[in-house]
Design a protein around this nucleic acid. Sequence first.
DNA 1: CATGCCGGGGC
DNA 2: GCCCCGGCATG
Length: 512
Amino acid sequence: MHTRRLVKRSILGSRVYAPSPTGDGAPVTGVVQAVKQENRDASAAGARRSVYTVLMQDGSLKEFTEEEIAAGSKGPLKSSLKHSSSNGVSDSHKLEGGCRSPEAVDEQRPSEGKRVGRDPDTRSVSLLEQKRKVVSSSIDVPHARRSEEEVDMDKVTAAMVLTSLSTSPLVRSPPVKVSEGLSGSWKENGSAGPFTPSSNSSSGGYWSWSAPSDQSNPSTPSPPLSADSFKPFRVPSVGGVGSNPTGAEDPSLDEQDGSSLLFDEPIPRKRKNSMKVMFKCLWKNCGKVLSTTAGIQRHIRTIHLGRNCDSDCSDGEEDFYYTEIKLNTDSVADGLSSLSPVSSSVLSPPPPPPSPLQPLSHQPESHRPSHPSDSKEPHAGGNTPLSRSAPSALYLIHSDHAYQATAPVSIPSSSSNSSSTSFTPTNSFSISWQSPPVTFTGNTVSPTENQVFGEQRSQTISVLSSPPRATTALSRKVRGEGKKCRKVYGMENRDMWCTACRWKKACQRFTD
DNA sequence: CATGCCGGGGC
DNA sequence: GCCCCGGCATG
């Protein structure tokens, strides 16, 4: 990480002073053409130096160390743009005297100026972008070029764009393409070492590490889904960055990998607008889920990365510690709405929050979460106390799915309680709550009451993987016993059917 | 296999 | 919203 950070923001094109080649002490000016890192290996402690390739006035290229250049002026970084040196003479003046040297200077600077005003929108255009990304946002160097305001604005707008993009399922992919593009072509420059002397096009590593993995195929045509393109990028963050305090990111990543497969519509039949996007922290043992990128970034930044400052000083690193998950809000809605009678059947009053006068009074209590945040369902007849409080959003998600269960309607008017434990004082009906349709991780999803926080992650995964086609026995209306239009009129008189029957819907004429 | 019905798509 | 159909569960 350090190594490439050293390059800091590019000073390419900057005018610098260099020791006179003649040795007469009179400094000469030149334009930085390239920067190299010396002894990159031993960079850890310090003593790492940059070597600047400088285009001299006379058109020759020379290399100077940082110190040499610094000796010539007050340092390369300051020399070019704003005021610089000690004598108070403006830069331009010195240039007048020193080097009104040719095109090189004028050529370089405009191009460099481009970088400064970089537009967050261009994040999706990675190839172009990488040329501008010379100014890495992850650089912790005194802001020589960009004023604080610039940075702030950049972050803010970027955050806004990110948020808006990732909130809408339709437009989610763009922000991710950054990584996708960078990981491909940009990788070569990044890992091949220092910048090549190829003038101003110095491809900068936007993220300070190069992708060692070959998982990212350089020319991914157009992956529509973001989850995959996310993945290869996150992996290098483990080995490459080394900034992971715990150093144990792998498990979560693995799980992430596993679950990310589930992101892309496992279900052939997809429902419209039924997905809500959430963001889940991938930090080990965290798994916090928030609804906005800003929120999750803030969470990671403050909680895990230990950065106190607000969103301003973000370097984007948070992006790699959360992922995007989709929640099937639709099924949630279904489940909730199923509490009210779906069909005209008079049977089985659902455990209805809206009707407190129900005789089965104590039952609704435990069932009435009043908000979905109440954790596990009491399931079939389990008279669990309502004590459990589940603060985490995960529980919210989970219990939502639990509500998919509907009250089965199969009740012969007599007594036989069809399902397990009866909890109702009356014997005329029973309401059985089924375990949530989610069955992925086996242990956690089972109706067990013992919910541990540590299992949140798998909870989430199971949620993600939960097929909307829930436990069909419940969600599906039980087949009616009586005759239906089809039977009554027969296929030949199909026009006499009720419309529902004609449409293969639940018969409206002969309801059970 | 016939039937009932859900989810979804086309218009 | 009307209409139809694929597909699934059930008997």
